[in-house]
Structures are given as C-alpha cells and as structure tokens.
Design a protein around this nucleic acid. Structure first.
Lengths: 240, 240
DNA sequence: GACAAACTTTGTTTCAGCGCAAACTCGGAA
DNA sequence: TTCCGAGTTTGCGCTGAAACAAAGTTTGTC
C-alpha cells in the first residue's frame, strides 16, 4: 500500500512552492522558510491512501501536485466519494474542527506530492501566521458548501443530471483545455464517476456512450473530454 | 412572515441561560454578562424563517429554546432539509467560515427563542473569549460529519433505511421519553420527514403505517412516538 | 506476442418507489 | 355545530435505474 520513495526526497524546498497558495499568501519569505523547514515532503503513487478514516489525526497536509479523492466506506463495503481535492489545498485538517481522528479516507487519484506537518504545529500555525486560519476555514466553508450541494443533488436530481453535474464540476475544478474540448486532468474510471454520483458503473457507461454519440463528450479509458459543456449544462437542468 | 413580538422582550437576561452551553461554558459571570448585554433576544413563531439563504450574514444566533430546520430550496422549488438544530446551539455562523451570506435558510420547527448578535462582534468574541472559537468550530465539525453521513446514506441506502435512520437521529437529538416510548419533541409532518430523507410524503406515510401495524411506532398527526427503537435500528441496517 | 488484469460496453430482467388520483380525518375557526 | 383546510392514508400503474449476465477492449507484463 505504501510508497517506496522515502520522505524528504527533495533536498530543499523552494519558497515559491507555497508563496502563492492562499493559506500562505500573506506571509513573508522568512515565515514560509520556517514553515517549509518543518515540513515533510512525500510522493504518493496513484491510488494509495494518504490517511485513513478513523485513524488518529497526526498530521495535516498541503497537496502540492496531483489530485486526491476523499472517500468514505460504508459498512456494506461500498465507497462513496464526498470530495475531490486539487493541488494547492490543505487536507486532513480535522483538527481545525476539534476532531482527533480523520473523518474520511484520502486516496490519491494520480501520482501526487504533498507536504505534511505534525498536527501539533496546527495551533502554532494558526496563532503565528496571519491569514492561515482564515483561509483554512474558508476552505472548509467551501467544502461544506459543496457537500450541501451534493446533498441537494442526491435528494432531487435524476442520475443523468447528477452525472452531468459531476462532470461539469470536475472540468471546472480540474479541467485542462485540449483541442477538442476540456479534459478532466486526471484518470477517472466509470467506477469512480459512479461513486461520485451514487449510481452504478453500468449506468455511467451507458450515459457516456449516449453522450458520445450525440457529440457532447469524447471518452477513452480513464479519460474524459467534454466537448460541449453547454449541452451538459442543459442536461444537468433536466432538459433532454 | 415575521413575528409581532418586538425584540428585547425579556427585561434582563439571566446569566444562567448561557453559562452551561458549550461555547460559553469556560467563561465567568462577568464575561457572560457582557455578552448578554450585547445580545438581542427574540421569539419566533413556528414555521418562520430566522434568516434566508443568500441574504447578507448580518447576525449570528444562539437558539435558546425550540428547534430549527436548516433547509435549501432548489431551483425547481423543492425543499431539502440538511440539518436539524436543537436548542443550545449556535446558528448562522457563516462568518466563521469566511462567508458573507447565509448558505441556507433557517426555519423554526416550533415556536423558538433565540439570542442574536451583530456579526461584527464575531471576531471580538472569538478573540476575547476562551473556548468560544474552539467550541464553535467543533459544532461545525459535527455538522460536517452529519452532512457526510447524510451523503453516504442518500448514496447507498434504500428509502426504508433512510427514514428509519432519520427517525433514530431525531429521537437521539430531540427525543423526549413518554410512557409508550420516545417521542419526537416537535411537530413533524410526513412532508417534513420526506424532505429530510429525499422521498415523497406518500412513501413516508406508507412506511409509518406499516411500522405502526408492526408496533414499532405510534403516530398521530404531526407527532411521532418510537416505541421500539431497536427494531428501527435493524431496519436501518437493511433487515426486514 | 501471449496472457492477465483492469476497464468498458451492451443486453435483459426486475422492482422499489414515484406520480397521479381520490378519499378520509383531525383540529381549529367562525 | 358546522365548515374548511391542512395533514394523512391508500390504491394503482408506470418507469428509471439497479441487478444480473456476458462479451469486448485496452494496457501492462513476462
């Protein structure tokens, strides 16, 4: 499960890694240097767990590169993805909400690089570094909003609309422009998409096939390009 | 929509109102006095909105008595209840997450009483009062966990299980012991319950009727008593 | 270049729960 | 006391999407 490349691979981390990221953007070079010097850097292969639901929340992370899926596993063994986290965001910040275990599992969707700090540093970070707490809570606020949206979607929308919405959200958050449209920037299977939309991989496959015939998307294995986002928006609103 | 009883009805608020509530429990009498003197107290009739989704977050609230439903309304006009808030909790604390509008509408389920403060006081409260911020964030953490649970439920469970779970959660949070079992402490219609479980009032009605025949619940209009919680737990796990 | 594993597609069957419709009941207002 | 509206119950038909099943395709590995 774990990775073969040891921690602290990168000899010395550059300040520019963090200086433009919201939680750190108000800090000066010296402060960022201090933060980096306390950080552990680590590479994760695709598909490995950075931390597990229920485990003691010992470290918090800043995802520098890659994508992470936040998943929960039901007692019946089904997986439900509750969030996607792109590079540049904090994760595992349970402590900010007074928890001492991680509330969900974080799995890399691609090969990823993350910095991490001991959770004991959390309170000194929030105390010392201006804007760090505020920005962290903003991130949590955004995630809360996103979860709220997912609840409403699950509660009121048809499968087709949910899948269309999920696709739109993914290209918004992590889309990359390519010649034929906008591509989701990391490998994503029908299974992943079904876990994100609370349906089965079969149904997702059928939908994507239908959409491909109508020219809305182009999909190869693990890759999806949205060529007509506007049409997807219509679908997400329930039009056919 | 609004209420006829003016603010500041209660001549002078007693410190004991707040002293045992988590966000204030670590404070001394003098501090609580100061907080109370800045508060506005107001009574709300059942079924009125304390604040509306999207409105500027001008005040934050402490619910002293009653119950509040946090709802969102979809573009199609359907309501989805995302949380129930019992007395003793803060609400409308959008600001803690860096938002300047309320992310959802708060509607009273019963006649309720709440204190409120101008949102401008938020930062001074968190700065001055020990434990206030921590406890507030803990509340948010709990709500996040609850929402997460709802997502997983919506994603993986059958209607019957979801309704059973909702009922169990309600009696846990707001149950009152009566001779024949545990009663939900505020009026709740089939419609409310259907909005909480993402189904129709018809289905909820059928389920409750069936359960009543089997002796698991007793229900009159707007009132539900759970007489066999354990059987409901089994149902919520998928047994029949 | 063959094999296995992972991922995807497509067909068929089944049924939970929704939509629609109608009737019933309770509790308060007048 | 009657009336009315809000809340509830129940029946029935329909359908979206899950379950089941099986075959096809891509990719990496030895």
């Amino acid at each position: 499960m774990n990775d073969d490349i040891p921690a602290k691979t990168l000899p010395r981390l550059d300040e520019s890694l963090l200086s433009h990221l919201p939680p750190f953007s108000r800090l000066d070079r010296r402060q960022i240097r201090a933060i980096l010097d306390q950080a552990t850097s680590r590479r994760y292969a695709a598909g490995v767990a950075i931390f597990d639901e229920g485990a003691p929340a010992e470290r918090f992370y800043m995802l520098l590169d890659g994508y992470v899926r936040v998943v929960r596993i039901t007692s019946a063994g089904e997986q439900v993805t509750s969030l996607h986290i792109p590079a540049g965001q904090l994760l595992g910040i349970a402590r900010a909400l007074g928890r001492d275990t991680y509330p969900a599992t974080a799995v890399t969707a691609t090969e990823s690089i993350a910095l991490s700090w001991s959770m004991q540093l959390w309170s000194s970070f929030t105390a010392q570094y201006d804007g760090f707490a505020t920005e962290s809570y903003k991130t949590i606020g955004d995630r809360l909003g996103e979860m709220n949206t997912r609840i409403v979607e699950l509660a009121t929308q048809q499968v087709e609309q949910r899948v269309a919405n999920a696709l739109l959200r993914l290209i918004n958050q992590t889309g990359r422009k390519v010649s034929k449209g906008i591509e989701i920037d990391f490998p994503i299977t029908r299974q992943d998409l079904s876990e994100l939309t609370a349906t089965t991989l079969h149904t997702v496959s059928r939908l994507l096939s239908a959409w491909e015939k109508r020219g809305l998307v182009i999909s190869k294995r693990k890759r999806i390009i949205v060529s007509d986002p506007h049409a997807l928006v219509l679908l997400s609103e329930g039009q056919h």
